[in-house]
Amino acid sequence: MSLQLFIEQLLNGIQFGFMLFLMSAGLTLIFGVMGLINLAHGSFFMIGAFSASFVAGLTGNFFLAILASLIFPALIGITVEFSIIRKLYERDHLDQVLATFALILIFSEATRYIFGAFPLFLDIPNILQGNILLPGEIVYSKYRLIIIIIGLFIAIGLYFLINRTLLGIQIKAGQNDRQMIRVLGINISRLYTIVFAMGAALAGLAGALIGAIQSVEVGMGEPVLILAFVVIVIGGIGSIKGALIGALLIGVLDTMARLFLPIFFELIMETSQALSLGSSLASMSAYLLMALVLIFRPTGLFGKK
């Protein structure tokens, strides 16, 4: 294996990690601030991809499409928060899981009703097609590099938002003691709506960015949602920093396991068995890591004790 291939795979892992981060940042904030388990978060991923595909089809402009993938999920997020989610904050987690699971079904079937059962088309613009030559003779996809850069900017942006703004202080206070900030006269329901809409917009952005290189179809959000939950469990629930580290860990681990495990097993057993066992174990790697973290740090890497 050449060093170039190794670095290319490392970049692939980091790109996958940033995509997971966009998903899990919203999930972890919503859980941390409102104490809500939101299974419907994957639906915003799907709504983002569909609205991007719709706008791209209408205008032919990818950047407008990306803008739409932020705005539509945020608007739908606000509506849903107002009408349904709000009633769930005081209920126990089982009720929240049931209600948000119902939302998944409603969103999926509504999307299928509007756009049909066949996958939609969404492609990256011509200027981002193809590869770029990085230092050290590394050929890497321009578009994937852009995803890494966007992810990086959003991570920095969220860091400033949480640590340097009034909203961030309110969010942190909300995580620590919901009763107290209500008593202090902060409009908590407005804060909840903002956090929920922000989470939905980030998930929608992830959906559109990924939809352009994958398939825009009903149900595309749920597999990502499962990994996003693994990320926030590893990172520690409620922690943005945890979500970032967790997402990058999972992204790199998953990619590297897919690359190296089959090669590793080929050294010690017959080829066809090695391929099968290697790829099976690679698909489990994220969950194995989660199990390990839970054994040694039950609250996650950056979770509160």
Binding site: F16, S141, Q214, R258, P262, A282
Partner: peptide
């Protein structure tokens, strides 16, 4: 090379890099 991916996997960056190499 014979590669088996996870059922439902939608990101093939790692496999495509292998193909290229």
């Amino acid at each position: 090379n014979e590669v088996y991916t996870k059922l439902g996997q939608t990101d093939y960056a790692a496999e495509i890099a292998k193909i290229r190499a």
